[in-house]
């Protein structure tokens, strides 16, 4: 299963990637909104874990662009914004789940496994 991790904070990205690798997932990394859109198109991940506050293109815009091409691709939003509005917005924008940081990793794994094909 290929997971694309989009996160601009390098320490948090590296941590997430290493924890996923330990569980034998294949992991791809993107550090801004533009490259996550490009990688989604070029590398066909099974699921995307996406931060919202990213440079170039924010998570909302990236999500819309990806879903315009792959409407079925599951996207989980991981955000440090934890206002109730963001959660609602994530679901109405077509994300399959919204997890606020600090991330509950076990919950994240359960969500990811729900989308194993």
């Amino acid at each position: 299963m290929i997971i694309l991790v989009a996160e601009d904070d390098s320490r948090n990205r590296e941590m997430l990637v290493r924890r996923l690798l330990r569980r034998n997932y294949s992991v791809l990394e993107a550090e801004n909104g533009l490259s996550v859109v490009e990688m989604a198109k070029a590398q066909h991940p099974d699921i995307i874990l996406m931060d919202i506050a990213m440079p170039e293109l924010n998570g909302w815009e990236a999500l819309a662009q990806i879903h315009a091409v792959y409407p079925e691709l599951p996207v989980i939003i991981l955000s440090a914004h934890s206002m109730i509005d963001d959660q609602r917005r994530a679901i109405s924008a077509g994300a399959v789940a919204y997890l606020s940081k600090p991330i509950d990793f076990d919950r994240l794994l359960i969500k990811i496994e729900q989308f194993r094909r």
């Binding site: 941590m15 290493r18 924890r19 440090a80 914004h81 600090p102």
Partner: peptide, 21 residues
Amino acid sequence: LASMSHELRTPLNAVIGYSEL
């Protein structure tokens, strides 16, 4: 408040995540 929540949660994510790792 929204910005503060964001600014606190980002380093906390690193603290908790790296400790668990």
